[in-house]
């Protein structure tokens, strides 16, 4: 690649990043498709979706407000997500790439592969983000963390445009120093200790880095996915002999609220933030706390 081309590509990348940030992106990075394909399972690389893709743009939007982190779980699970902002940024980028830069682009579907059921993603957004340097895998079931922005919601854009790639993070913000201390004292980090379904385990080496992360995703799914809920309720309702048990299974409080969420589409079916709620990176990173950022901004304005 000629130097002029590199300069042009860097300018395009900068323009795209600026556009994405204006639309709400916090972290943004680029991974080369060739690199992603080296790690993606067969059939799940970017070129399986966009055959001439050259770049993956990973964008992350910030998580909840400080108020939300402190709410009861019932509230947090209802208003804690920020996925809609991801659609806005990533879908906007694809149109921008095609219209302004003439490169075919797609918004990477974040959902499951329809051939394989409810727990088999079409693509790994984590892999894209990790290689693009927008997040690093944590002890909390590989949830990605960013040293400044904490827990982000991620989206990926595939484009036929070649862009200068970024590097993965040099350091992993997980485990945080306070988590290492707790692990040394009690054998568990806060995320492991307070998981309601006890799906997390792992170890930290003598350098304070992740030695091993163990994650029972099928347990986490009992809180965060619940795709088996509806057929399970119906099957059990058929099986039970007691009319009141059947009515509880189909019309009880938990059943009704599940059906409400599943059919009305007004709320997320299942969310759980308990591991992130106790994560110092997720809740206290320098760019995580809107209260602190606002105070700094006001102080800077006063100084000027």
């Amino acid at each position: 690649m000629a130097d002029d081309d590199k300069t042009d590509q860097q300018a395009i990348k900068d323009a795209l990043f600026e556009y994405a940030r204006k639309r709400g992106a916090a972290a943004i990075g680029v991974a080369a498709v060739n690199l992603v394909e080296q790690f993606a399972p067969p059939g799940h690389g970017p070129r399986d979706l966009l055959p001439r893709a050259k770049s993956v743009i990973s964008v992350g939007v910030t998580g909840p407000t400080q108020g939300t982190w402190r709410t009861p779980a019932k509230v947090m699970t209802s208003i804690g997500t920020n996925v809609s902002r991801i659609y806005r940024v990533a879908a906007g980028l694809t149109f921008r790439l095609e219209r302004v830069f003439g490169a075919r682009s797609i918004y990477c579907p974040p959902h499951v592969d329809p051939e394989f059921g409810a727990r088999h993603p079409m693509q790994s957004l984590k892999l894209h983000a990790e290689l693009a340097g927008t997040g690093a895998r944590s002890l909390a079931g590989d949830i990605l963390l960013h040293p400044d922005y904490g827990m982000l919601y991620y989206g990926s854009v595939f484009t036929e445009l070649e862009l200068p790639p970024d590097q993965p993070m040099a350091d992993n913000p997980c485990p945080a120093p306070s988590c290492i201390k707790l692990y040394r004292e009690g054998g568990q980090t806060p995320c492991m200790k307070y998981c309601p379904v006890e799906c997390l385990d792992g170890s930290i080496d003598e350098n304070g880095e992740i030695e091993e992360m163990r994650f029972d995703m099928y347990r986490c799914a009992e809180l965060c996915q619940q795709y088996e809920n509806m057929p399970t309720m119906i099957e059990r309702a058929f099986e039970t002999e007691d009319q009141l048990d059947r009515e509880e299974l189909l019309y009880g409080g938990e059943a009704q609220s599940f059906f409400y969420k599943a059919t009305a589409g007004v709320d997320t079916n299942a969310q759980c933030f308990e591991c992130m709620r106790v994560c110092p990176v997720a809740t206290q990173g320098p760019m995580v706390d809107p209260l602190r950022i606002g105070a700094l901004e006001r102080a800077a304005a006063d100084k000027d």
Partner: peptide, 18 residues
């Protein structure tokens, strides 16, 4: 997955937080 799935876990969240 369906056999191992427990549909009575989500209620654990109801008293958490705050």
């Amino acid at each position: 997955e369906r056999r191992l799935f427990r549909s009575d876990q989500y209620r654990k969240l109801f008293r958490l937080g705050g």
